[in-house]
Design a protein around this nucleic acid. Structure first.
Lengths: 196, 196
DNA sequence: AGCAAATTTGCGTACCACGCAAATAATTTG
DNA sequence: CAAATTATTTGCGTGGTACGCAAATTTGCT
């Protein structure tokens, strides 16, 4: 990503990245299927960390609080003013169509990991997650993305963590405002309970 | 996709697709950046159709009903037993890592289109969508994906539309069960109201 | 019919992913 | 400590791909 910021994405070859990492190009390709994947590796890492963070929340917390705190934990380090380098990197990521696709993959991993951890927490096996778990995970992932975008274009620059916090609150408020009082007509699976 | 099902994804070259479409390989690449993009074009189309469907719902419907009906409209044609060809195609799509990435792009377009249409409906401009709109769109997209997966592996085969319907209901029920009674502490933007 | 604009096409080039097998490094085991 | 096993890195070759560019063809308009 450093190289891409310095010279522009299309002026960086796999060869260059391999050289900068002091490995052969072939080795680079053993670890990354493309240069785009390499650039998005950091985001992918964070996706996994969010899942882990949720699994580590105490069982005493309600599901919502646990999810919220897990996300905030991972973004806690982003409470200060943003690093211009990082900003430039993310702007780069979202402006290139190919990188954008790669970035979406990383975001889908957030969803996958979150849904698994949520399902575990509500007493299921991660592989057999429910629609409700997927919905919650999808909503969380969406607001993380939206918050990141807002932070990215904020002028003057702002810290990311509070934006994430706002986004999660708006998620909850918005959902509650939109959803009807649903009649529990059919019961197709165990409902998720508010307290894990 | 037909060719990929017949011979396996890696045994289909751009050249073959171009020949089957009776254009030159170069023309193929004028329209699709890769063969994977071409294969996922149908899913991408449907993403746009969902956004359109939402914009066409009558203003008298509540937001939730409008979204729900828009999604169901688009999947209404999938009320019969699934076409084995289609099943094979989607299984192909989600089993190949590269195609999966491309599929995720199409799904992210659902989110984007939905968020825009939702924002319009609640009186904003599509470009400036709120966190709440993004959250709802993300949740919807996630359950569409989850429902598609469940349908895909159902044995015996089942129709897709009812699964989508169940998924949307579980979304609503699950969210209501999980979300706390949020104290409206800060007011950072116009809340979405239930009736557009 | 005649002209302008858009689309299609061929060609050339730089680049890339990955199979395979050899070389090198790390780890286990007697 | 040495030998053997395993894992990692590397070079090479190959089939394939995306895309800039400019020419040729088709399309649309008056």
């Amino acid at each position: 990503m450093r190289l891409a910021i310095e010279r522009g994405l299309e002026n960086v070859l796999v060869e260059d990245i391999a050289a900068a990492a002091e490995v052969s190009p072939r080795t680079f390709n053993n670890y990354f299927a493309s240069k785009y994947e390499a650039i998005c590796a950091l985001t992918l890492d964070r996706s996994f960390r969010i899942g882990e963070a949720l699994r580590e929340r105490p069982a005493s917390e309600s599901l919502w609080d646990a999810v919220r705190n897990a996300v905030l934990d991972v973004y806690a380090s982003a409470s200060a003013a943003p690093d211009p380098q990082l900003i430039a990197g993310i702007r780069l990521v979202i402006s290139s169509p190919v990188l954008r696709g790669e970035y979406l993959k990383a975001l889908s991993v957030v969803q996958y990991e979150l849904a698994g951890a949520i399902t575990e927490r509500t007493g299921g096996v991660p592989a057999a997650d429910t629609f409700a778990a997927r919905a919650l995970a999808g909503a969380i992932a969406a607001v993380i993305q939206a918050a990141t975008e807002r932070w990215l274009f904020a002028d003057p620059p702002i810290a990311l963590a509070p934006v994430i916090e706002d986004a999660l609150r708006e998620l909850a408020e918005g959902m509650l405002a939109v959803l009807p009082e649903v009649v529990p007509a059919k019961n197709n699976g165990p409902p998720m309970t508010a307290s894990g």
